[in-house]
Amino acid sequence: MRVTTQNGRVVLVPDQTEIPIDVHKLSENEFRSLGLANVAYIRPALTEEGDEGCAIHAADGSPLAVVEDWETAWGIILHHDMVPASLQ
């Protein structure tokens, strides 16, 4: 809350940061940008050698890396101070 004046009276007004966002009213681009810098997801993929592995993607779908297994992917994401999400 912040304090302001309206018509000579002191009133409390909620900060914009305190108003919850209705995700149903976001555009597709706004929705995709939520958590963009903080979230990475893991999904099954093939490594360069053709073996089964895991792909790490940014929240917007941009590929970041392909590793051998789920545990390695999870560890890499945490090491970079991101929040992992799995699509298995």
Rank of each mutant, 00 (worst) to 15 (best):
S27W: 01
G50Q: 12
D22Y: 00
E28S: 15
R2D: 13
V3R: 12
N38W: 05
V13P: 02
V11N: 06
P14D: 08
A85I: 06
S33Q: 04
I56A: 05
E68D: 15
E18K: 10
R2Q: 15
L34W: 05
A59M: 13
L78Y: 01
D22I: 02
R32W: 01
E52W: 07
R32A: 02
P63Y: 06
A85G: 10
V39N: 02
N7F: 06
A40V: 03
A40K: 02
T4H: 12
S27T: 08
Q88H: 05
K25S: 10
L34I: 14
P14Q: 12
G61N: 04
W74F: 11
R43E: 14
M82F: 06
V66C: 07
V13H: 08
V67K: 10
L12Y: 13
A55V: 02
A65V: 05
G50P: 13
L87D: 14
V3C: 12
W70S: 15
I42S: 00
P44D: 10
P84R: 13
L12K: 14
V67F: 09
H57A: 03
L36K: 00
E49P: 03
M82T: 09
I56Q: 04
P63G: 07
E71L: 09
H80N: 12
Q6D: 12
E30W: 01
Q88N: 14
V83I: 09
V13T: 11
I56Y: 01
V10W: 03
T17E: 13
I56R: 04
C54L: 06
V23P: 06
L46E: 06
G75M: 11
T47A: 00
T4Y: 13
G75T: 14
T5D: 10
Q16W: 04
A45L: 02
K25F: 05
V23C: 05
S86M: 11
G61T: 06
I21G: 00
S33E: 07
V23L: 09
S33M: 05
A40R: 13
Y41L: 05
L36I: 01
G50F: 07
D51P: 00
I56V: 07
P44S: 04
V23Y: 07
T4K: 11
W70N: 11
D15P: 05
P63T: 06
V3A: 07
P84K: 14
Q88K: 08
E49I: 06
D69P: 01
E28A: 13
Q6C: 10
A40W: 00
I76P: 01
A45D: 10
H57S: 04
A58T: 13
D22P: 01
G50E: 11
V13D: 13
G35W: 01
E18P: 00
N29A: 14
A85W: 06
L34M: 09
L34N: 07
R2K: 15
G75S: 15
L46A: 06
P14W: 03
V66H: 07
A45Y: 02
H80T: 09
P84V: 12
L64W: 13
